[in-house]
Amino acid sequence: MTNKITFGSVFLYGTLTIMALFFLMPAYMAMVTALKLPGDISLPAAWEFPSTINWASFSDAVKMLKPNFINSIILTVCATIGSTVLGSLNGYVFSKWKFKGSEVVFTLFLFGMFIPYQVILIPLFQTLRAMNLYGGLPGLILAHIVYGLPITSLIFRNFYSQIPTALIESGRLDGAGFFSIYFRIVFPLSIPGFVVTSLWQFTQIWNEFLWGICLTRHADNPITVGLAQLAGGQAVSWNLPMAGSIMAAIPVLAIYIFLGRYFIRGLLAGSVKE
């Protein structure tokens, strides 16, 4: 590409700048509003920079959302580990130990990823109640592990199908069995697969709301539910919900900004074909 200013390059950079501003607009608005004193927030001056920087909104938001934040950390870490480990084993079987009908089973798994979750909500609610798991985090963790299986199995299956079958065969000739092949050959090669899958699951579970609001009681609400309640009250001034939004966004934004490459791979894997 040349450095000459042409109509094309003006159009290209001009359009990209306008679009980038449109995409950054909500982030700017959230930051500016969170930093204002409640009295300084007014609708006509919403875009203006705060006259005095007020960090107190963040400490207030942390104080109010801290229990939810901790719940979300526990929930997300446990459910991510569970669904990733199971997904890795499933992907190993689906790609290297195909049996008669395993492709059909795999397709039936994938279907579970595309259902609107409203359709399983009522039986899930009743089942967790019958198992005495309703209202707390263990029930929510179980739900996230089970419904995470399709996507984690899919990512690992696609990942493992890149491992040459010859490698597995040579392991078998050396007398290694199903599990020793997994632990000695496949698992050491799957660190990137684990990173991609666990980051993807982490963001999905962190951001989930429907089960959070339907299946947990107040003390065990995850961060999304806590934020919705904080923002839903009419009396609160807008600096608090904005600070809360930033707080709820930070863990996933950090993943996205620092480990974006892996995040995008998970995102592409989610579209089934790679």
Partner: peptide, 28 residues
């Protein structure tokens, strides 16, 4: 690319809260 993709990593509750403020009738 980072700028265009970051909204995808956010929770709908986060983006919904911010957009509600952005779409307030006399502001935003």
């Amino acid at each position: 690319r980072t700028i265009f993709l970051y909204p995808m990593s956010l929770s709908f509750i986060v983006s919904g809260t911010i957009w509600r403020w952005l779409l307030a009738p006399q502001g935003g």
